[in-house]
Design a binder for these strands. Structure first.
Ligand code: SF4
Ligand code: SF4
Lengths: 133, 133
DNA sequence: ATGCTTTAAGACTATTTTAGTCTTAAAAAG
DNA sequence: CTTTTTAAGACTAAAATAGTCTTAAAGCAT
């Protein structure tokens, strides 16, 4: 029951960008890597994922880099986790009904589904804004 | 963000034992393995862990096996997960303050700690009794 | 006492996931 | 057209998960 390192890095780097967000400044990967103490190439993958999921805008070439695509209050912890490691599953059967043959009518499954929904809605409650304000 | 197979197996086997709990019947590992469709040796490890954590009673020798040590309503999902895979961490820094050097005063950490506490208290709400009743 | 049956413990192995690197391509700016 | 920056994806290393196997110890039954 853990988030991955990549997720933690993503939160860290997004908080950094959000907190320095004076007039749409754009940050290079290299710069973010040093400031947030995240391995450069690994950060590359993470920033790419965040850009694909419309959390960051990326631009190439000279003067390129990354900036937020939305307001900090519109980027929740759930959005970040989902972008980086995919949806929260809790147990495979919750997301793949063919995973287990006792799946139909399983009451363990229905309780785990409740736990999952609560966790997701809890993670949606917190945004980058809550951190930087 | 997943529970392990071992945890799911543990829930499954405990629910089975709890539901068949006519007058303190004792179940052999072998029997449970077949009935719950869990690899026999792997189930051994799981049952051992549950016995160590005072969820099951184990007895050796002929007429040996496993039975519940508490009433089904006193065995929560949290108890089972904790017994089998250890405590829920969400992020390493929540459980090891030396893990990250930005740990002191980190606001990501304090939010993740809230999420963790909510998840734990949610998992404590549900017991084996909720499944078998 | 001594087999027989059952769990305990832990070393061992295989598979999958996580964490991270590296190389090549493509876009943008000057 | 060269430099700088990200994109994409193959690749690798390390760790965790999932599971097996072997040896020991405990309890019952004769
Ligand atoms: S036993 Fe129930 S909870 Fe476990 S995998 Fe099967 S359907 Fe899901
Ligand atoms: S950055 Fe904050 S949340 Fe992330 S590991 Fe460090 S202390 Fe924990």
């Amino acid at each position: 029951m853990k988030i991955t390192r990549a997720c933690d890095y993503a939160l860290k780097v997004l908080v950094y960008i959000a907190s320095e967000n004076n007039k749409n400044k754009i940050f290079m990967r290299n710069e973010l890597s040093k400031l947030c103490d995240i391995p450069d190439s690994f950060l590359g993958k993470i920033l790419q994922a965040l850009a694909r999921e419309n959390i960051l805008v990326s631009e190439r070439g000279k003067k390129g880099g990354f900036k937020l695509q939305k307001k900090p209050e519109d980027i929740s912890f759930y959005d970040v986790i989902k972008a980086v490691e995919g949806d929260i599953t809790i147990n495979d059967c919750l997301v793949d009904k063919n995973f287990c043959n006792s799946s139909y009518g399983c009451r363990i499954q229905s309780i785990l589904e409740k736990v999952r929904q609560n966790l997701i809605s809890d993670l949606k409650k917190y945004s980058l804004e809550d951190i930087i304000s």
